[in-house]
Design a protein around this nucleic acid. Structure first.
Lengths: 229, 229
DNA sequence: ACCTGAACACCGTTCAAGT
DNA sequence: ACCTGAACACCGTTCAAGT
């Protein structure tokens, strides 16, 4: 992932090194490098931190060079997003047994991949579906069929799981930023406990076990979709 | 919702009326007017269409007057969002019977409210929870308790429903924009049917019954959360 | 074919003034 | 107390050139 940063000599006159750590003798610009660097930048600075100028800077390229390789900023987002959703499944899907294990594994991996890049979940629903998510949906479809979900219910089941994963991951990725805020919210809730007695008592806003809640909620949903007989 | 637009005389020298329909003798600026107008503008132009200058323009106010009433643009988003999530429940919650009907009604109303303002769903997960969503969560909590969900599972159940609603609504609101794109995607899928045979056969990307899928998926999830015995 | 800086058309926000 | 325009510090993108 990280660039190799070979020690080398500078190109010509200095560029007024404000950043101080600009690598020298860069490999030429390429889509691959641009996408990889965009992911790094997004990880470091979030969605709002991705600016075309800054990206070019990180690449050691002139400010506007990117526009030769990419149509516009949107395209950078699309490419960065898909590059982050790759799935290296558990060996082969031929393993017919334990459809449920396969599904849970893939969905937990999906969520984990997006949480490693907290900008990605929010982006996913508003962009065209790239090949890497299609692979995941296909796996889902196969497994659910095998589990006995009827053809008439198949699409509903897939979208239900999609909704659950997207909703959980977007929520988690965004709440993550505001740990103190959450305490403050629960505090406020306590002050208003006459209005919200039930969620105040269960300490809904303080509940911190995101991974457990995802896993248990997913189990409930799968129970509903394909009841174990 | 819509302003009354009383016919009246202009204030002084013309402002070079580019928009052509600027109302005259506006009521004074107020938080309420700002929020209501922000919602209108968001509905009309989307998240990216809300610019402080444009909002001021719609209010018939000078470009920078808003900053007296609001700290910054973020605050406008927060206020607009909460104003859109109000719930006027079915009479009273005392109706103990039919917890499931109550839940389904509230969640469908929640989704419908957000789809009426397609920018709202994406905003919700990244902002502090306002009073209007807390009311909905409280209702959810009460109903699920009544349905027999144990205290240990209560938070999981609430977040599962949250995830489902958020995921479904964000997805629907965004896919809505691209009806042709979806056909194109399915087309592309058909071309690659050796890679994605199952979702190609079920025509996953063409499935257009969003309301039905939401309702049926919600039923599955509720079955998992509180099995009907 | 690939890269570049200058320039344009925006934005959010600050600030010193106005009434 | 409330409103205002000018000004600042950005940003995405176009374009005419460079090599």
């Amino acid at each position: 992932m990280a660039a190799k940063r070979s020690g080398a000599e500078s190109k010509g006159s200095g560029r007024g090194g404000a950043s101080g750590q600009e690598p020298r003798s860069e490999p030429p610009l390429s889509l691959e490098r641009i996408v990889a660097t965009a992911v790094d930048l997004l990880d470091a600075e979030g969605v709002d931190g991705l600016k075309m100028r800054r990206l070019a800077d990180r690449l050691g390229a002139g400010a506007m060079s990117l526009y030769w390789h990419v149509g516009n900023k949107e395209e950078v987002f699309d490419l960065a997003l898909d590059s982050v959703l790759e799935y290296r499944g558990p060996s082969d899907i031929v393993e017919s047994r334990d459809w449920r294990g396969n599904v849970v594994h893939m969905l937990e991996d999906w969520r984990a991949s997006m949480l490693r890049h907290p900008w990605s979940a929010s982006l996913l629903p508003r962009r065209a579906l790239g090949p890497n998510i299609l692979i995941r949906l296909e796996l889902l479809s196969k497994a659910l069929s095998r589990a006995g979900v009827t053809d008439a219910d198949l699409n509903v089941a897939i979208w239900s799981l999609w909704n659950f994963v997207i909703g959980a991951t977007i929520t988690r990725a965004n709440f993550d930023l505001s740990d103190d805020d959450r305490a403050a919210a629960q505090q406020r809730l306590t002050g208003l406990s006459q209005h919200y007695p039930t969620i105040e008592r269960s300490r809904l806003l303080l509940d911190n076990d995101w991974d457990g809640a995802f896993r248990k909620g997913l189990d409930f949903l799968l129970d509903g979709l394909a009841p174990r007989q």
